[in-house]
């Protein structure tokens, strides 16, 4: 971890970085914001880590908990809303057996998160599964996709 953090520190100093770009680098490197990474950088920069925490909790892009291997992103824009994205999200929660208030399944396989409008409104409702955009999504198509991810994992065993 320290090597990665040292690189982040170096990049920050060379490229006019700021606390947000540091957190973006941490998120990219670890998939979330580990507390000890924040503490390490905070002590090197002589900034109280509480300032980092304030920023990390302000912006939606930062996650304080590790996330699942597969990321399902539901667009919550207006067009997706009027085309029924809420119902699809509820369907996915059932399929993944997500406990209320949680984003990530217990086995750390899936994370289902909502994001603000991604601007692909013409093909609403939109879901992104592992960075691939699925437009005009339907319950059937989404569940099929998720089952195929689950299936390929089982085959791998």
């Amino acid at each position: 971890m320290e090597k990665t953090l040292e690189k982040i520190l170096k990049d920050t100093r060379e490229n006019e970085g700021n606390l947000i770009s540091i957190l973006q680098d941490i998120e990219n490197a670890f998939g979330y914001i580990p507390e000890n990474a924040v503490n390490w950088l905070a002590s090197k920069l002589d900034i109280n880590p509480s300032i980092f925490y304030g920023i990390a909790t302000f912006y939606a892009q930062f996650h304080l908990k590790p996330r699942g291997k597969n990321i399902i992103t539901a667009c919550c824009g207006t067009a997706c809303h009027v085309k029924g994205s809420d119902r699809l999200i509820n369907g996915l929660k059932q399929e993944l057996a997500l406990p209320e208030g949680e984003e990530t399944t217990k086995n750390m396989e899936f994370t289902l998160e909502k994001v603000n409008c991604i601007g692909a409104c013409s093909i609403a409702p939109v879901f992104i599964i592992n960075k691939k955009v699925h437009g005009k999504a339907s319950a059937d198509k989404l569940i099929k996709e998720i089952r195929s991810i689950k299936g390929s994992k089982n085959e791998g065993k």
Binding site: T78, H81, N116, C117, G119, A120
Partner: peptide, 12 residues
């Protein structure tokens, strides 16, 4: 920082 849901002019 086009944030309005349902807007994608700036992105385009």
């Amino acid at each position: 920082d086009e944030g309005d849901p349902g807007a994608f002019m700036d992105r385009s």
